[in-house]
């Protein structure tokens, strides 16, 4: 188990612990830097997720298995995914430009931050010199495991904090519901209203032909073809259009469709053939070959 390897790497500063630390540290820092410089918010979110996972590994190296798991499950799994969903709703817009609009903001910020980091690091190194070798083996064994030890602390020493945090969670949930509630200003449209509306507007009133009717492919990005061979734009989802990933119409496919519609047999490349039929409405019959 990976956990054992990492656990054995904790005792004393042997090479295993060092390697884990350095690898994870590099990943974490690069993830943070990536978050900073990404143009698209989704990329930033994924970089943050990367940092959080490496942090989880570091927790494992620090004799905190429970916390490492919780990090991955709660933080990366829930919180970061929440971020991604919100990015999806909020969408892309011009604020993602990396050009700095406030004068005197970027470089002083970098300078101050660098100074801040330098001070902190100096203080830490200064303060932690000559610290004894740490180990949590005893503490973890005291209650029969890390989880049990944390549980004992939460439910005895920090019970009040626990209760208050639970109240906080409830409040947060309520708050989110409240904040995102959209008051309906007009009466909800009934099915009758929707139906009327659909038939009054120009355009196709009924269901669009599903992908596959005279289809040659069943990929979502391939448009359906009308009997005259022109593609149906509505059969491809909107975002794909915006992204420009709609597959172009295959000329051979349109010829095939045309000939089929004209009642000719078409011999496919793999040798199968389709028998023509006059009866277009009946669809495949029992005697048709597949």
């Amino acid at each position: 188990m990976n956990l054992d390897v990492i656990a054995s790497a904790q005792v004393g500063s042997n090479g295993g612990a060092e390697i884990v630390f350095w690898v994870c540290a590099v990943i974490a820092v690069s993830g943070a830097v990536g978050m900073l410089v990404s143009r698209k918010p989704v990329h930033s979110a994924l970089f943050v997720a990367m940092t959080m996972v490496s942090l989880a590994v570091l927790y494992l190296a620090l004799d905190a298995p429970f916390l490492g798991m919780v990090q991955i499950i709660v933080y990366t799994g829930a919180v970061m995914m929440l971020f991604v969903f919100v990015i999806m709703i909020v969408g892309v817009d011009a604020s993602d430009s990396l050009v700095e609009t406030i004068r005197g903001q970027r470089w002083p910020a970098i300078a101050f931050t660098a100074g801040f980091a330098a001070l902190l690091i100096g203080a830490i190194v200064n303060g932690l010199q000559g610290a004894p070798d740490p180990s949590l083996a005893l503490a973890n064994a005291a209650d029969g495991g890390n989880v049990q030890g944390i549980a004992r602390l939460i439910f005895t020493k920090y019970a009040l904090a626990f209760e208050i945090t639970s109240a906080l969670l409830i409040t947060a949930a309520l708050g989110a519901v409240l904040l995102t509630h959209r008051e309906r200003h007009t009466p909800k449209a009934t099915q009758e209203d929707l139906s009327r509306k659909r038939f009054r507007e120009p355009g196709h009133p009924g269901n669009l032909p599903p992908a596959g009717t005279y289809a040659r492919h069943n990929a979502v990005d391939t448009p359906a073809l009308l009997p005259d061979g022109s593609p149906v734009p509505e059969s491809v989802p909107g975002p794909l259009h915006e992204r420009g990933s709609v597959r172009p119409v295959n000329a051979g496919a349109t010829d095939e469709v045309r000939s089929l519609a004209g009642g000719h047999t078409v011999i496919t490349e793999d040798g199968g053939h389709v028998q023509q039929s006059d009866d277009f409405d009946n669809g495949p019959e029992a005697g048709d070959k597949p």
Binding site: Q105, P108, A109, F112, T113, G115, F116, L119, L120, A123
Partner: peptide, 15 residues
């Protein structure tokens, strides 16, 4: 940014 500036000053002073 100004808050960070102040924080840097305080930490620096403490240090």
């Amino acid at each position: 940014l100004t808050m960070l500036g102040g924080a840097v000053l305080i930490v620096g002073a403490l240090f």
